[in-house]
Amino acid sequence: MKSSRIPAFILSLVLVFLYLPILLLVVNSFNEARYSSTWGGFTLKWYEALLDRQNRDLWDAAQRTLLIALASSGISMILGTLSACALHWYRSRLQRINYGILYLPIVIPDLLMGISLLLFLVALGVTLGSGTILIAHVTFCASFVTVVVLGRLQGFDENVIAAARDLGASKWVIIRRIILPLLAPGIVAGGLLAFTLSVDDYVITFFVTGPGSTTLPLKIYSMVKHSKDLPIINAISTLFLILTFLIVWLSQRLTEHQPNRDSP
């Protein structure tokens, strides 16, 4: 038993290290004092400040972030599901190339994706803004959705399709009534992952954004960089945390079930 005492000690230190900044941030969002070094009593004034007219741009940024996340997760759900099916059902040279190209956006540093896309868009003379952010987000989200849906397909019982075909079901009926319902939890989980990745992204968005198209991470970044309104950042970060936890909790619930257990 002695041998596990050192790892247990390291683990507890690491957990403190991992949670300390986040906890302090949440606690400080309720701190009356402007600086985190003293506790000035409980307050909700930083949250109230979020509602001020002068912080309207924060809400605009939040709205834009959510819209881009919704659109990019929607598109990448379609693209990711199609490519996962292609990778799962076919074993050709084309699929080997497809596999390599799909995995690259996951491995390559996001900075490189951002800069190459920016150079390309500038060379084409495209106006930068919400549209280009959307394109960039779909480009890295599609690969992640593919991986999640591919995982779901691995537990797929091919006999169901064969049985449906024997019973005379057409291709569209098989897709609509069998494949899509069976894959649905994987597609939704992939979509939620895409949503969180899109909301989380700073680096790629920073490169492909245009004037007036600020997202929430960009906004928070510039506030932090200029050490402006630090307590307000605490408050908005806490709200952001709650949103992320809700989404992750939801996607965990969806992926928990085994593919064969919730089949119709």
């Binding site: 379609i78 693209l79 990711g80 199609l82 490519s83 099916c85 292609a86 059902w89 076919y90 050709s92 084309l94 699929q95 497809n98 190209i101 799909l102 690259l104 956006p105 994706m113 190459s116 896309l117 390309f120 394109i135 960039a136 779909v138 480009t139 599609a142 690969s143 593919t146």
Partner: peptide
């Protein structure tokens, strides 16, 4: 196979490769 592969592969070809 091509119908399933083309949309994503083309998207990544244009915006990534």
């Amino acid at each position: 196979e091509i119908l399933l592969t083309a949309p994503t592969l083309l998207w990544l070809a244009v915006f990534f490769v």
